[in-house]
Simulated assay, not measured.
Amino acid sequence: MPVKDQIKNFARKLVEEHPDAATLRALVRARKPTAIHFRDDGIVPNNPKLPALLYRGAVKLKGRRFPPEVIIDTLFATNGWARSWRDTVYDFVHYHSQIHEVMGVARGTARIECGGIKGRILNVKAGDVLVLPAGTGHRLIESGRDFLVVGAYPQDGTYDECTDTRERTDAIKRIAKVRKPKTDPVLGTGGPLLRHWRPHSSRS
């Protein structure tokens, strides 16, 4: 999301009450993510080395003291994924060539296309978390009226938004240079993202 959306969310977080570390740990399920590799489809480069990761039901949200978007936002920030935003997902194909992105579903359900038009449509619901390595195309196909996502980014990297095939050549070079994050946005320093995103990670 643009910087203005991140600033707006930062201002909101200043006045919110946030769960403490012990509460957060109790709300997180140690799920094994599904790793999904997407090939360059000629339009969207995707990521040649790193898979997208889908954590099903990673966060317990129902009947909690804190709003679900606050829980997810705080979880990501605690694990070093910040510059967050809260909104829906763009309904046009786009990708980020200079940064990885995590999206946690706080409310509702949706169908999100990942990997471009030749990729896969993923059904997601509240509590699911989707981590997209730099270059991974994504767009919203459809969603419920109450659908809400919390998005965030690791410390390294610069937000950009690529939608045009004329950007491909330079974008591919930028994607190759994006550093791997130091932490898993859901499970921190010991999370499975660090294993799945090793340099020698093989395709599934």
Rank of each mutant, 00 (worst) to 15 (best):
N79C: 07
L140G: 05
N79V: 09
N79Y: 15
M103V: 11
R139S: 13
G137C: 06
T136V: 14
T109W: 11
V131K: 01
G119M: 07
I99N: 02
A82L: 00
I121C: 00
R139Q: 15
G80D: 12
R111L: 00
G144M: 01
T78G: 11
A82Y: 09
D146E: 14
W85K: 02
W81N: 01
L122M: 11
R145N: 04
A82H: 06
A77V: 15
L140R: 07
S97Y: 07
Y95W: 15
R86N: 14
F92D: 15
W81A: 01
P133Y: 01
L132I: 15
Q98D: 13
L140C: 06
K118T: 09
G116Q: 10
C114N: 09
T136L: 14
L140F: 02
I99W: 00
P133L: 02
A77H: 14
V129E: 14
R139D: 06
E113Y: 00
Y90D: 11
I99R: 00
G108N: 04
T88M: 08
V105N: 07
T136K: 01
E142T: 08
G135A: 04
L140P: 07
G115D: 08
I112R: 03
T136C: 09
R139T: 13
H138L: 06
S143T: 14
H138D: 09
I112M: 07
H94W: 11
G115C: 03
G80L: 04
L140T: 11
E113M: 03
I121D: 06
G119P: 08
G127N: 10
P133T: 10
R120Y: 01
G144I: 03
N79I: 09
E142F: 00
E113G: 05
W85A: 06
L140Q: 10
M103L: 12
G127R: 05
V131N: 00
I112H: 00
P133A: 03
H96M: 11
G104Q: 08
D146V: 02
C114G: 04
D91V: 01
D87P: 05
H138S: 06
G135Y: 03
K125R: 13
G108M: 00
G119L: 05
L130C: 12
D146F: 00
I117T: 05
D87G: 10
R120A: 11
P133R: 02
A106H: 08
R145F: 07
I112A: 04
A77I: 13
E101G: 00
Y90I: 08
G127S: 12
L122N: 12
H138W: 00
R111A: 02
H94I: 13
V89E: 07
V129A: 05
R107Q: 15
A82F: 05
S97W: 08
R139L: 11
E142A: 02
G108H: 03
V129R: 02
R120I: 03
D146W: 01
A110D: 15
I117R: 03
R145H: 07
G108T: 06
I112E: 12
G119D: 09
A126K: 07
F92Q: 15
N123R: 14
A126F: 06
S143K: 13
G127L: 11
E113W: 00
D87A: 15
G135M: 09
Q98H: 09
V131M: 09
I141W: 06
A126N: 13
R83C: 04
W81C: 00
T88A: 11
G108C: 02
R145P: 05
R86E: 15
Y90K: 03
N79R: 12
D128S: 07
C114T: 14
G104L: 04
G116V: 03
T88C: 05
T136D: 12
E142L: 01
